[in-house]
């Protein structure tokens, strides 16, 4: 691994370990200076980028846990009394959720608790038996699977979704590639979606949901197939979107990030209440 590749990898790893941009720049600059002067191999001097970044993060007392935004904006999504039954079985029972601009809501629950059903109802893809959803602004939706076209490459996906959002071809490609870069992914220009790995296809899915900067983002377990690094990148992106004033709803069954969201909707409670 040459100096530049190692430094680039270190930059990504520091970000994943929650080190802020200023400190990351400082650490990387110092490492670059040292490597330039010594002429030694970075792996020999510092070790693998991941291990070195972890050591830096540990020396700072752990990742930078940001408190939730104190002053969330206006209501962007308001779901009221959502009830859904399948063949006589109540899956969702009078579920309410309010998400404001600059907030993240996590929807959690056991398998079959109705997490995806709730999100599909919020997206307007499924009708509830009772209840209403009000969306103030535009909506972006990332399904758990599907949502891409097998025979189109990533750029063609960007153009297709972008046209719906009113973006021209070049602008859609630029926006798509910028979104992909934030997930440490460079979309291959000619690879069709069917040839992408499961995790990479989910990255494409996520980037598509973000195209056109919708005000409300509904993400249904979008990290399926992500490796650890991409999973951390994903959460950093979600926090960045929150900081940019977006309302984000994430369906998840991974509870280790719940301390970093603003609202938790536990659908297991809804089922238990019904029982």
């Amino acid at each position: 691994m040459n100096h530049n590749a190692w430094l680039a990898a270190l930059t990504g790893e520091l970000r994943r370990h929650g080190v802020g941009p200023d400190l990351t720049g400082h650490v990387v600059a110092e490492a670059a200076t040292h490597l330039a002067k010594s002429g030694e191999s970075p792996l020999r001097v510092f070790g693998p980028p991941d291990a070195y970044a972890r050591a830096v993060a540990d020396s700072l007392g752990g990742p930078d846990v940001r408190p939730p935004r104190r002053h969330p904006g206006p209501v962007r999504l308001a779901a009221r009394g959502i009830t859904k039954r399948y063949r006589g079985r109540t899956v969702l029972d009078r579920v309410d959720l309010t998400v404001r601009a600059g907030e993240i809501a996590a929807v959690v629950g056991a398998n079959g608790a109705g997490k995806s059903t709730f999100l599909r109802i919020c997206a307007g893809l499924l009708s509830p038996d009772a209840g209403t959803v009000a969306v103030h602004g535009t909506l972006g939706y990332c399904p758990q699977d599907g949502g891409t076209a097998e025979f189109l490459n990533p750029d063609e996906h960007f153009v297709l979704i972008g046209a719906g959002r009113g973006l021209g071809r070049a602008a859609a490609r630029r926006a798509g590639r910028a979104g992909a870069a934030a997930l440490e992914w460079t979309p291959p220009p000619r690879t069709q979606a069917r040839h992408l790995s499961g995790g990479t296809r989910q990255k494409l899915n996520l980037v598509l949901a973000r195209l056109g900067e919708p005000d409300v983002l509904l993400l249904d377990e979008p990290y399926q197939g992500f490796d650890r690094g991409t999973y951390l990148d994903f959460w950093h992106e979600v926090w960045r979107w929150r900081d940019a004033g977006k309302a984000v709803v994430v369906v998840t069954h991974l509870l280790n990030q719940l301390d970093r969201v603003d609202t938790v909707l536990d659908l297991t409670a809804s089922r238990e209440r019904d029982a």
Binding site: A123, G146, G147, A149, L160, G164, R165, G166, L208
Partner: peptide, 11 residues
């Protein structure tokens, strides 16, 4: 599979 997403995207 993709049409509901396209519909949500403004089509």
């Amino acid at each position: 599979g993709i049409e509901p997403r396209l519909r949500l995207s403004g089509y």
